[in-house]
């Protein structure tokens, strides 16, 4: 699945949040980085019609998403929100089952239940199936939310800070999982704060600043000390460890 975004603009009550975004995304692992308020989340939400852009188009395999119903989009694009605590208690199985909504009107079949269990098994969550979602750890909850998007059988996954609030092990686990999905032909687009994780896993990185794309390209080309200084206003040194790029802030 290909996404083409042209001249996308969005404002919240007159305050511009996206200013003329254009990107072509193919089957790849794309990381969107940038400071708080640079428009990462807004861009993700415009890509699946949660928000309606003021101007510009989002094309999905050549079709304007405004011509697609919300249900048709749901079969193609899965959205994984930032994990917020204090959600309504439900069993893990029930949370993942809501991912089947685009396919079933009211009564689900055994096939839907099997799809849910299969996704849970792939993510190693089967033993939690009947646990309450809010009793799980942050890393497990994040996996459950990804499981829901997988149950949706979407070819494109949009993720909003999937590694926020996770410990190092779970951060790597979630990123590995996303990487393995791209190998199965899923397009993964994730907003992420951690530049090191982004450089390590993403095929390409989009660096945003003030609602615009500041830089786009391979991690090597985008994550440079010049770009980080211009976008974040922070002095950093970029090191290379085992062919990964690592960013270290410089004191003073």
């Amino acid at each position: 699945m290909r996404i083409r975004i042209r001249e996308l603009e969005f404002e919240y009550d007159g305050i511009p949040a996206l200013k003329g975004i254009s990107i072509d995304i193919n089957e790849e692992f794309l990381a969107i980085v940038g400071p708080n308020g640079s428009g990462k989340t807004t861009l993700l939400k415009c890509m699946c019609k949660i928000l309606k852009p003021k101007r510009g188009v989002v094309m999905l395999n050549g079709r304007d998403i405004n011509d697609l119903s919300q249900m048709e989009i749901a079969k193609r694009i899965g959205y994984v929100p930032q994990n917020v605590s204090g959600t309504f208690p439900a069993k893990v199985f029930e949370v993942v089952l809501t991912g089947r909504r685009p396919y079933i009107g009211w009564k689900f079949s055994r096939k839907d239940l099997e799809k849910v269990s299969e996704v849970l098994r792939v993510l190693g969550l089967e033993e939690f199936a009947m646990r309450d979602f809010d009793t799980l750890s942050g890393g497990q909850q994040q996996k459950v939310l990804i499981a829901r998007a997988l149950a949706q059988e979407a070819k494109i996954l949009l993720l909003d800070e999937p590694t926020a609030n996770l410990d190092l092990k779970h951060q790597l686990e979630v990123m590995e999982l996303l990487k393995s999905l791209t190998r199965k032909g899923v397009t993964v687009i994730t907003a992420i704060h951690d530049l090191n994780l982004a450089s390590m896993f993403a095929d390409r990185i989009v660096m945003m600043k003030d609602g615009k794309i500041f830089a786009i390209g391979t991690p090597k080309n985008v994550v440079t000390s010049d770009n980080v200084r211009a976008v974040y206003g922070v002095e950093v040194r970029v090191l290379e460890v085992d062919s990964y790029r690592v960013i270290v802030p410089v004191k003073g």
């Binding site: 939400k45 699946c48 019609k49 949660i50 119903s69 919300q70 249900m71 989009i73 749901a74 079969k75 694009i77 899965g78 959205y79 929100p81 917020v84 959600t87 309504f88 439900a90 029930e94 949370v95 809501t98 991912g99 909504r101 685009p102 079933i104 009107g105 009211w106 829901r148 949706q152 949009l158």
Partner: peptide
């Protein structure tokens, strides 16, 4: 009763994610 499944989606997922699952 016909809408209970959609209410489940809204309760579990919240408004924004519900939209991405095809519920208005």
């Amino acid at each position: 009763f016909w809408k209970t499944w959609d209410v489940n989606v809204i309760m579990i997922a919240g408004d924004e994610t519900a939209k991405s699952l095809g519920v208005n």
